[in-house]
Amino acid sequence: MKKYSFIALILASLLFSSSSLFAQKGVAKLNLEWNAGLPLGNFKNNYISNGSLRGFTGDVTVGLNNQWALGLGFGTQDFYQKYPMATYDLAPNQQVSAVVTNSIQIMPLLFKAMYTPFQGSTHLIQPYATIGAGIAFVNYNQYLGEFSSNNTPKGHFSAMADGGIMIPFNKYNSNTAFQLGASFQYVHFNQPDAMALNTANIHAGFIFRLR
C-alpha cells in the first residue's frame, strides 16, 4: 500500500507541479495538425453531409507569458459530396438531370488567442483553450456532371473555439509537444439555404519551437 501511495505521489507531482522551468514568453511556436471536419446544421442539411478527413490546421503563436499566446491560425478543409443522378427544375419550363457534386474548401486565416494554464510547468498533460476570429476563404463549386459553377473563392467572417491537450516531449520543455483537440468553427456564408458553414473538428499534430 505504501508503495502505491508513493507512486501516486510521484505521478501527482509530475502532473500538478507548477515549477516554471521553461517559460514561453517571447517564444514563437509552429503548430501543424491533421484535421477532420464534420459539417453541421444547414451546411450538413443543404450542401454536404459527409465528413472530411482531408484537412490541415495550424498556427504560429508568440507567447506573451506562460498562460497566454497570440498568433495567426491557418488551415484548409476540403468537403466533397457526390449525389446520385436526379432531375432538378431550373425554371418552370426547364429541367436538368445530372449527377450533382458539391465541392467546398474552407481556408481560414484567423487571429488567435491561446490560454495554457500549466504552460511552463512539468505537467505531463497540459490543457489549452483557444479562441480565434478572422476571415475564411470559401471556395464553393457545384458541378452538374462535369460542369462547374466556376465560382471564385470569397472571404467570409469566421470565428472558432478550440480546446484540447498538449503532451510535451520533454517534461522540462513544453514548447515542443503533441497536441490533440476538438474545435467548433463558424463561417458566415449568407446564403438562403445556409447562413453559416459550421463545422465540428478534431485535430492532432505537433507543436514545434521556431525561436
Partner: peptide, 26 residues
Amino acid sequence: VLVSLQSCTKNVVNNLSTDETRMYVT
C-alpha cells in the same frame, strides 16, 4: 503552407464515370 495544402482538394471530375459527366437539359 495554406497554398501548399490547397493541393489536397479532391478532384471532382476525376471521380466521375463517363456517364456521370453528362448533364441532360430539356
